[in-house]
Design a protein around this nucleic acid. Structure first.
Length: 541
DNA sequence: GCCGTTTTCGGCCCGACTGTTTTCAGTCG
């Protein structure tokens, strides 16, 4: 079997398991695996031959074995047995609207219904309405659903859908209570074949818009009508749904209802990985269930949801550090060579500089003295820094760090000294790269680097991350004796890491440093003056 | 059945609407 055939079998297993009442997550695992296989860019046989099947996310031991069986023998006993245990008519019943696996199972268990025809008969005889969880309305709805499938095709050409959708869209846009309105779903994605038409509108009076929608001339029948959502059948038997949200929610709802479903699940998971929560109402800075506007990452358009990370996060950082009582906070993301850390390239860094400026202007307008400083932790590459001097010159603060060190001490030392000699570099970050209890320090002649920093007026970081504490406290008295200033950095990768500053202060004391030795104890105007001095240091090249 | 940069067990996206219920299950998107 090829991957399309295998995917079809896995998807069918998912459906069959649903009808059996299996754990929905187990069911989903099969469906997800089917989609994953469909999306593979190389033949399954090759992947299996190279034993890489298990490396694919979502394919564990069990699926690995089943897929291998299907590809190599074309057969799978588990599938055959499962299929034999469920009447084909039950699978077909899933096509009927409002009928899902649970109800189909109940109909089968209690009334032995195994086909759409038997279901229709049972409804007509009134037997369905007597079941627990069913009633008169459900019975009527099922009969209508069966009839609907017979009368109309369940899927439609895009062109047919657009012909029906566009007049409704125009009409909605013309309504005085509608602020923004768009199609969503498969119509907006321009799928060649669509199931139903989705509309999304923003309004302060959703009820009025819902009422207007359900009374459109093309509406044959109204299948659902709530406060923010309605479903109708339009001319030609095409089902159409309208959701009405507030205008602030509109971008999120538009992204959400445009889908696809798989895309949405992926987006939500990405949000969770970043400590955020995404739903149709917003992107929230919390993984808890919330619609608290204070936690909302503001996005005015759909596009901003995808790129709002920096802006939302910068504002969040600023607010957090301001609240902690800091007068300023430097943003020093990694540079592009640190691709594993999503390092910024020049274009993104320039964007960030603008954003920092915008946020600072906002603080100034609000009468606040707090300021963000734009910066970078630029990678020290083999022969140069990861950014050009032009760009470094635009920044308030430049930290240069060695992330990929070689095994040669002299070479590592040379690279660090070269970085210190760069007129735009204010400080060297985590000099040895050590991770306490995890990774050895790079081989570096620290004394030579400290001497070079003294020569060039470059500061040295005391990285306050408890895994680093780098420069080591034992070396600070020497650095101090040479007149090298210290900067206590918490190496924050999230807001809570600001707490590391306290640890850094303790380590600094342990190294016999005082407030006068630590540059970032200065108030902002004095600090800016010091930052400005670096470029004019006489020993700079 | 899958998965893990706080987890090898306990989660797995999540909210609206409907109909059947007296607080929630099922379906849908």
């Amino acid at each position: 079997m090829d991957k399309e055939q295998v995917a079809a079998v896995l998807a069918e297993i998912g459906t069959l398991l649903e009808l059996k009442g299996e754990n929905p997550f187990k069911t989903r695992a099969y469906v997800n695996a089917a989609r994953t296989l469909e999306g593979l860019s190389e033949p399954l046989e090759k992947i299996i031959a190279e034993e890489r099947l298990g490396e694919i996310k979502g394919i564990g031991d069990a699926l690995q074995k089943k897929i291998t069986d299907l590809v190599t023998t074309g057969k799978l006993a588990y599938y055959d047995e499962l299929k034999a245990s469920i009447p084909a008519g039950m699978v077909a019943m899933l096509q009927i609207p409002s009928l899902g696996p649970k109800k189909i199972k109940a109909l089968h268990d209690k009334l032995q219904i195994e086909s759409i025809e038997q279901l229709e008969q049972a409804c007509k005889e009134g037997r369905v309405a007597t079941l627990d969880g069913f009633g008169e309305k459900t019975q009527t709805k099922l009969l209508e659903g069966i009839q609907f499938r017979r009368t109309y095709a369940s899927r439609h050409h895009l062109s047919d859908a657009l012909v029906v959708a566009e007049p409704v869209l125009e009409s909605l846009r013309g309504h005085p209570d509608v602020i923004r309105c768009s199609t969503a779903g498969s119509v907006r994605r321009f799928k060649e074949v669509i199931g139903d038409i989705d509309f999304l509108a923003s309004s302060k009076k959703p009820a009025a818009v819902i009422e207007f929608f359900t009374s459109q001339p093309g509406v044959l029948s109204v299948s659902a009508k709530g406060e923010t959502k309605a479903s109708v059948v339009l001319t030609g038997g095409i089902q159409a749904d309208l959701r009405v949200v507030s205008d602030a929610e509109f971008p999120f709802a538009l992204a959400y209802f445009t889908g696809s479903k798989e895309h949405n699940i992926a987006m939500r998971q990405r949000a969770i990985q970043r400590g955020l929560r995404l739903n149709e109402y917003g992107l929230f800075k919390s993984t808890e269930e919330t619609r608290d506007p204070k936690l909302l990452v503001e996005c005015r358009s759909e596009e901003e949801i995808f790129w709002s990370d920096g802006r939302g996060t910068l504002e969040e950082i600023a607010a957090h550090m301001h609240e902690l009582g800091c007068d300023y906070w430097a943003i020093t993301d990694h540079s592009k060579a640190s691709f594993q850390a999503n390092g910024l390239d020049a274009a993104r860094l320039r964007e960030q500089i603008k954003e920092v400026k915008r946020i600072n202007e906002q603080f100034a307008e609000e009468g606040s003295d707090f300021r963000l400083l734009s910066g970078t932790e630029v990678d020290i590459l083999k022969e140069r820094l990861d950014f050009d001097d032009d760009l470094l010159a635009e920044l308030d603060v430049v930290v240069a760090s060695l992330h990929v060190a070689g095994s040669d001490e002299a070479d590592n030392t040379k690279r660090l000294i070269a970085a210190a000699e760069n007129p735009h570099v204010h400080m060297l970050g985590h000099l040895t790269g050590r991770l306490l209890l995890e990774r050895e320090a790079y081989k570096v002649n620290q004394q030579a680097v400290i001497d070079a920093c003294a020569e060039t007026g470059t500061w040295i970081e005391l990285n306050a991350n408890p895994y680093r504490f780098d420069l080591d406290w034992r070396l600070w008295p020497y650095a101090k004796s040479k007149g090298v200033k210290c900067v206590i950095n918490c190496d924050a990768h999230r807001n809570e890491h600001a707490g590391f500053l306290r640890l850094g202060a303790g380590i600094a004391r342990k190294g016999w440093l005082t407030k006068a030795d630590v540059v970032n104890t200065l108030p902002l105007p004095a600090l800016l003056k010091e930052l400005g001095k670096k470029n004019r240091h006489p020993k700079r090249k």
